Simulated assay, not measured.
Amino acid sequence: MEDLELKRLLQQAKTIAVLGAHRDPSRPAHYVSRYLWEQGYRVLPVNPRFAGEELFGERVVGSLRELQSPVDILDVFRPSSALMDHLPEVLALGPGLVWLQLGIRHPGFEKALEEAGIPVVADRCLMVEHKRLFRGPLPL
């Protein structure tokens, strides 16, 4: 996806669901989510291990099916091997963009989403890309 399109989607987005959100501040699934929340996005955490707890001012839900709000971006922190298990829920949710975090790729999952008209960004960190697109390059 081109930078201009990516920037447009990030500017228009209001709500980001985080599949695999974590409460441990040292884990990327926490600090990336926290960064997004600090940027003004509503972050909806999804993780059955922490269901019922609160993260980023929202109650953690156990599955995507439990989300009550429309989702602009689905940020995924799940192993590639688990993605196909989530496909029916992701398709039912119909987010405007699915973002697979750094190290996460699954050609079959990505193809199914694209065929459903859902754009995908794979193997890239949403926090890093957001900083790059909105803050510019960092000095060396």
Rank of each mutant, 00 (worst) to 15 (best):
V32K: 00
S26R: 15
R42I: 12
K7C: 01
G57V: 11
F50P: 00
L36H: 05
V120K: 04
S63E: 05
R65K: 02
F109M: 04
D3E: 08
S26C: 06
M84G: 01
L97F: 12
R135W: 15
L74F: 11
E115C: 10
L97M: 09
Q101H: 09
L91P: 01
L4M: 10
K111Y: 05
K111W: 15
M84N: 01
N47H: 15
S81R: 13
P137K: 04
G117F: 09
V121G: 14
G96W: 01
H86R: 15
H130Q: 02
R105C: 07
S63W: 04
S33L: 06
R34C: 00
E114M: 02
R27Q: 05
K111T: 14
T15I: 09
E58H: 00
A82C: 12
V32A: 00
A17V: 10
A116S: 08
L44S: 03
P88L: 10
V71E: 07
A82P: 04
I118S: 14
A122Q: 15
K7M: 09
P107C: 07
R8P: 09
G117S: 07
H86P: 09
Q12E: 14
D72I: 05
C125S: 05
Q12G: 14
L6H: 07
E53D: 08
Q101M: 06
E66G: 02
G20Y: 04
H22F: 03
M1V: 12
D24W: 09
K7T: 03
E58Y: 00
V121I: 14
R65A: 07
H86Y: 15
P88N: 05
L83V: 09
Y41P: 05
V32R: 00
L126K: 03
A13D: 14
L10N: 11
A29M: 12
Q12S: 12
E58M: 01
Y31A: 04
V121Y: 06
R42Y: 06
R135N: 14
H130T: 05
A13W: 09
L19A: 11
V90W: 00
V46N: 07
R34Y: 02
M1Y: 13
G52N: 05
R59W: 00
L74W: 03
G96P: 04
R135Q: 15
F50I: 06
R27I: 00
S63M: 01
Q39N: 02
E110S: 08
A82D: 14
D75C: 08
R34L: 03
S80M: 12
A112Y: 09
P48M: 06
F134L: 14
P137I: 08
G117V: 12
P45I: 02
E114F: 04
F56W: 15
K131T: 02
L19R: 14
A82R: 15
F109N: 04
L10R: 15
L44F: 02
R65T: 06
